[in-house]
């Protein structure tokens, strides 16, 4: 599978999706002008990955900030990961939050309420 490696900007996140090395990460800030356009290739990639996933997927979110339009797309990503769980493979979400950002922890907990995927919360400092 192709590797997705997008460098972040001040309004779009870093994205690394690499099946071979088992690296799946979205980090930084997400408030793109056109959420649909930015995330479309990412959602397509995950769709394709879900057809033949690794036995174990560790998907890492390390977002400093995301706007509400991005929050909807993040749910779409998680719902796709949930399909992988339902197919019997192992998926874990590593949800990182900054020590000054309790809202980010709460956001992770809200997602964990909605989707059936185990969440691991990881606290980080500067």
């Amino acid at each position: 599978m192709d590797v997705i490696n997008i460098k972040g900007t001040d309004d779009t996140p870093n994205v690394i999706l690499d099946k071979a090395s088992g690296q799946f990460e979205i980090s930084g800030r997400s408030l793109p002008e056109d959420v649909n356009m930015f995330y479309e290739p990412i959602l397509d990639w995950i769709d394709q990955y879900a057809e033949e996933p690794n036995d174990h997927t560790e998907f890492c979110f390390k977002l400093e900030y995301f706007n509400t339009a991005s929050s909807k797309v993040i749910l779409d990503i998680l719902l796709k990961l949930e399909e992988i769980v339902e197919s019997g493979k192992e998926v874990i979400v590593k949800w990182h939050y900054h020590e000054d950002e309790e809202d980010m922890l709460e956001a992770g907990e809200e997602y964990a309420d909605i989707v059936e995927i185990p969440f691991d919360y990881v606290l980080y400092t500067d």
């Binding site: 002008e33 056109d34 959420v35 649909n36 509400t68 339009a69 929050s71 909807k72 797309v73 749910l75 809202d103 709460e106 809200e110 309420d113 909605i114």
Partner: peptide, 30 residues
């Protein structure tokens, strides 16, 4: 607010302009 947010995010379809109808709930929550 948290349960309204969860309900809305599940039902929401992104509009053409990328609105999810979550902005005001998010402001109140934060």
């Amino acid at each position: 607010l948290s349960s309204l947010y969860k309900q809305q995010i599940m039902e929401a379809k992104l509009s053409e302009k990328g609105g999810a109808g979550l902005g005001l709930i998010d402001i109140a929550k934060k």
